[in-house]
């Protein structure tokens, strides 16, 4: 019998769902401003005007979802920040050292066991995603309400909005590649966040052995039932 651990709660999964849809909409409607080659994306009937509205509606959802999440479950934010800001130990550095070789030769290079709830690379990426998202949100507001902002500040906001978008985009490509299980050794993991929030004990041990051990006790799972 396969046993499962709860990895993500309902609020976290709801925020992630909203962020996924909103981010896709924001990229789709925003990329046309970045490169003429993608102008066709916002063409079509009512395309341009609709895209402008969609971009702003998606932006509100992007900002609103985590705010609502914090209000509903403030301890979730504390828990997440604590896990993300955990000081790096020796295992983190070892894990990070092997991460890139593992990506290109998973058969030969295996990742060492990780002691935290969130892997070292995942922590770095998450902090980057949060930081660039904050820049995008702040500059996005300046661009939205440009009538009340000095032209110089609006120009800087536009530039930083794009710079943050580039780095966020690159991080999200990596996040999707690994999180959605396009990377073969992680196939199927996507349903933990997009499904019921549960992960098989074996998957958990493979990715976060220490966390799996702790949670198995906390969640009353029979230890070492790796099916």
């Amino acid at each position: 019998m396969t046993e499962y651990l709860v990895r993500h709660g309902g609020v976290a999964r709801a925020i992630h769902w909203v962020h996924t849809v909103a981010t896709m909409a924001l990229f789709y409607t925003g990329i046309a401003l970045y490169t003429p080659g993608t102008n066709f994306l916002v063409g079509g009937p009512g395309g341009l005007a609709v895209s402008t509205v969609v971009h702003r509606v998606a932006a509100v959802a992007f900002i609103g979802a985590p705010i609502l999440g914090i209000l509903l479950r403030p301890q979730g934010l504390t828990h997440m920040l604590k896990a993300l800001l955990k000081p790096w130990d020796r295992q983190d550095w070892l894990w990070m050292k092997k991460f890139v070789p593992h990506l290109f030769a998973a058969r030969k290079v295996h990742l060492p066991p990780h002691s935290g709830e969130i892997k070292a690379g995942q922590r770095l990426a998450s902090l980057g995603i949060i930081a660039f998202s904050v820049v995008i949100v702040v500059t996005g507001f300046l661009l939205w309400f440009d009538g009340n902002v000095p032209p110089g500040a609006v120009r800087w906001a536009g530039l930083l909005h794009d710079v943050a978008m580039i780095f966020l985009g690159a991080l999200l490509m990596g996040h999707i590649y690994l999180g959605a299980g396009i990377f073969q050794p992680l196939r199927g993991m996507v349903w933990t966040m997009f499904g019921n929030g549960k992960i098989s004990y074996r998957d958990a041990v493979y990715n976060w052995p220490k966390w799996a051990e702790d949670q198995a006790s906390a969640q009353g799972l029979q230890k070492r039932k790796m099916t």
Binding site: A105, A106, R107, G181, F183, Q184, P185, R187
Partner: peptide, 10 residues
């Protein structure tokens, strides 16, 4: 990365 790991399952 994807191509390098084709055929290597979870």
């Amino acid at each position: 990365s994807y191509l390098a790991n084709v055929g290597y399952s979870k």
